Amino acid sequence: MSDLASASQEASSAGYQKLVSQALESLPVSAPATAVWRTLGAAGALRALYGSSNTLGPVADPARLGALLRAVDARGDNGATLSVLVQAASALPVLGSGRSGPVPSAPSPVAAAYEQTLAGTTQVALAATDEAAAGSDLSGLGTEVRIEGDELVVHGGKRWVTNAGSAEYLLVLGRHRPGRHFTNFSWVLVPAKTAGVTVRAAATHLLANSATGHIGFDSVRLPADHLVGRNGRGMTVFARHMSTERLAGAQWAVALTSRVLADTRERLRQRTVDGEPLWHNAVVRQGFAECLVRVAQLRALCDSLAETAVKGQNLSAGALLKSAVGLTVDTVLARCTQLQGADGFAAGGAQGIRAEAGVLGIGGGVTELMLAGVADMSEQLLAELRA
């Protein structure tokens, strides 16, 4: 990239972050995630997030995606940030992949839902994790999507779905025929109030503002135009956008850990032992500095892999980013909980944040599986490192 293009991109990203920050500054910290999403949509921030598109849907601008997540994370509500992240990095792009209707003058329900969600007037929940299989085993899911004449029939269940309790639309990944082949799966847009749909809140006090829940589909019938994209393209589309979600997770991880480190540093500067701030203790400073280095390394990895990740053509980018998040976040937050001492157990302290941040090492693929994928690609990665 030329110096002029780089400067232009930085200016564009700075302007976008200012747009998002100004839009959110008047919103109460206690506002529900739906209000955060509405505000972002009304400001045009969601529509401006996607710089281009291809045959598999909208492509997010990585710098703007990072700016969006930093601004939302600054509010300190991890549930709301998770809600925004899943929609912006996964649900909207997948929905956008099937937005072209057969008749340009008569938009499909998918296209209409996409536009409403971009405008922030509705939310969409990405219902992928299945009740019939482990979260990491998407090809083993049991939710079915049958085509019967001019209708779709959805039957099964999804679990741990972000925005399940607040979304107007459910974006459901199901199988249309038996077997694990990637062409056996499709996406369906299910209005949340359709007969046969049941939603129950997940039994957890963590990430409360994410409206996470479990969804049941009891032979739910829909018109055939609620199929998202072509039948059998579900896994292909999902794989295309998965690395963008993993980049978003890494960008959020940088924002979250930086926020907690800044808070921890301030606490250490305020607390004293024998008249000296804890911040002046050499052991404390070394432990803090190690955390800072880890976060700086993760930020550098985000910057170096951002363009590759959003293009979705290099599996190693997503695997590296997701693995790095798993190896960084809990290590950094564990040290912060130690440095904050008893204060870490207070509301807003590092102990509670660490528990909620655990989603970064599980959602979208557990760290151990990501590392296995990195090992599988080791020959390619080593060649790139030595080039």
Rank of each mutant, 00 (worst) to 15 (best):
T81Q: 03
S186P: 13
A387S: 13
A43E: 04
G349S: 06
A164W: 00
A253H: 03
A195F: 08
T212D: 02
R294N: 09
G234S: 12
R221D: 04
P104I: 04
S139N: 13
V260S: 00
E290H: 09
H280E: 14
V161N: 03
A211P: 00
A324S: 14
A133P: 02
A167C: 10
T204I: 02
R335Q: 15
L371M: 15
Y114M: 08
A357K: 02
S210F: 12
G232R: 08
T122W: 01
V329C: 01
A91H: 02
V284P: 07
S258F: 00
Q338K: 10
V220P: 15
A164T: 04
Q87M: 10
L333W: 11
L40H: 07
V199K: 11
V325E: 03
R335V: 15
L170R: 07
G165F: 01
K18S: 15
K18P: 06
Y114E: 13
R38L: 14
F238Q: 07
P277A: 06
P58I: 02
G249T: 00
L152G: 09
P93D: 15
Q251C: 05
H226S: 02
Y50Q: 08
G51C: 08
F185C: 03
A248W: 00
S53H: 08
V94W: 01
L92V: 15
G96P: 10
G312A: 14
L173N: 05
R70I: 00
R177D: 02
P104S: 10
P107W: 08
A164K: 01
R159P: 01
A60L: 11
V84H: 03
A319R: 09
T244G: 08
V260Q: 03
G174Y: 13
E368G: 04
D150F: 10
D343L: 15
V220C: 13
P93C: 11
L385T: 03
R285D: 08
R233D: 15
A63L: 15
A202R: 10
R294P: 00
D218M: 08
G66R: 04
V145M: 05
A253R: 01
S186A: 11
A14T: 13
S90I: 01
G157E: 04
S378Q: 11
L68F: 02
R38N: 14
G76L: 05
N78L: 14
E151Q: 13
L261F: 01
Y16M: 09
H241K: 09
A128Q: 12
S52I: 03
G41K: 06
R285H: 14
Y16R: 12
M235N: 08
R294W: 10
G51P: 06
A306M: 06
V94A: 05
G135H: 10
P191S: 11
S186H: 10
V197S: 09
L4E: 15
A74Y: 00
R38P: 03
R354L: 10
A91K: 02
V59Y: 08
T337L: 04
V374R: 07
V260L: 03
A296V: 03
D343F: 14
F288T: 06
A112G: 07
V325C: 06
R221P: 11
P93H: 12
N184S: 15
Q9I: 05
A7K: 10
G249C: 06
A387C: 09
